[in-house]
């Protein structure tokens, strides 16, 4: 009986299952089906974001009433991706990406370029590029249809599997699967950051803005001055589901100039920085604070101070920090 149902129209199947399984917990098969649909939506979004010519205006909102408007352009010019993210308020910050070179134009700093296939903007880049990678740490749930920015939108929820990270509400355009709205919600379901698209234009031809960009005249690509980590003897006893170490180095902090051992963890949606610093004296600062969605947490472990920074709940940051084991003395000053 299940086979023919599965092969028939999805709405019919939904109706049948509803009739047959009312009162019972939703079957695993059904859940798989919904998850597959959600993943298909995300894949479609990733494809659209890479292949369409679009111009999107969006506003980034904070719960304290602050907001930042952006314009975001993307085009495929001669099979080469070009992208432009511009912050509209304030002194003006522009990020331009031509294929795998991202150039930053900011006040007070000479322009520079980095090698990267994504612009690290207000929207998680991994979500755009390889949404399949998120499946290790997050569940995707189809929610329903609504209207956002004057367009029909499909709503999805992205929830961390072990409830250790913030969850997201995502609205995608029904036609193109481009992003219309993204809410980051804390554990109580209150928004921490919201991206709201205000206008969206998908065009057949690339925006004329990109014809003015001369790829050769972009600033020099620079390499970070970080050294590879020399203390490979610190390990995590616990990490949130789907979170992995993506980077490890030793470098100086920008303002204080102190040397730190550094490790970056990422689950695709959020990046978490973990710092290890030798204490000069006994004034370790155990504590945490929240700045916007970012949590900063410091605690002392022997002669070392562990600091965790990232958009994760304080409890998670604390668990990460506490799970670190220093299997050996670090000798760096």
């Amino acid at each position: 009986m299940r086979k023919p149902i599965k092969n028939s129209m999805s709405c019919l199947r939904a109706l049948m299952i509803l009739l047959l399984v009312v009162g019972q917990p939703v079957s695993a098969q059904q859940q798989d089906g919904a998850e597959r649909v959600a993943k298909a939506w995300l894949e479609k979004m990733a494809w659209s974001l890479r292949n369409l010519n679009y111009q999107i205006s969006f506003v980034l909102l904070y719960p304290n009433g602050d907001f930042e408007p952006y314009t975001w352009r993307h085009a495929l010019v001669a099979d080469q991706e070009m992208e432009h993210l511009s912050m509209l308020n304030g002194p003006g910050r522009e990020v331009v990406r031509v294929a795998d070179k991202v150039s930053y134009f900011e006040p007070n700093v000479p322009p520079y370029s980095l090698q990267s296939e994504v612009i690290n903007g207000p929207i998680p880049a991994e979500l755009f590029r390889q949404p399949a990678n998120l499946a290790k740490g997050y569940d995707f749930v189809m929610v329903g249809t609504s209207r956002v920015s004057g367009r029909l939108a499909q709503q999805l929820r992205i929830v961390s599997k072990d409830k250790s990270r913030y969850s997201y509400n995502l609205w995608l355009d029904k036609q193109t699967a481009l992003i219309l709205r993204l809410d980051m919600l804390n554990m109580q379901g209150e928004p921490l950051e919201q991206v709201q698209v205000t206008s969206m234009n998908v065009t057949a031809q690339p925006d004329e803005y990109f014809s003015r960009i001369e790829a050769e005249k972009m600033p020099q690509r620079i390499a970070p001055a970080d050294r590879p980590s020399q203390n490979a003897d610190w390990q995590f006893g616990w990490l949130p589901a789907g979170m992995m170490e993506v980077r490890r180095s030793t470098h100086r902090l920008p303002l204080t100039g102190q040397w730190v051992d550094y490790m970056m963890l990422s689950d695709g949606m959020v990046d978490v920085s973990v710092y290890l610093q030798k204490l000069d004296s006994d004034l370790a600062e155990n504590g945490w604070l929240q700045q916007g969605a970012n949590t900063l947490l410091s605690l002392q472990n022997g002669q070392m101070e562990i600091t965790v920074v990232g958009k994760v709940p304080p409890q998670t940051a604390s668990s990460i920090a506490k799970s670190i084991s220093l299997s050996g003395r670090t000798s760096r000053d």
């Binding site: 980095l114 296939e117 993506v246 920008p254 102190q258």
Partner: peptide
């Protein structure tokens, strides 16, 4: 310093 460095590392992460 930590917050700034976190932002900076996120840019570098993409590169890495």
């Amino acid at each position: 310093a930590y917050l700034n460095d976190h932002q900076r590392q996120m840019r570098l992460k993409a590169q890495k």
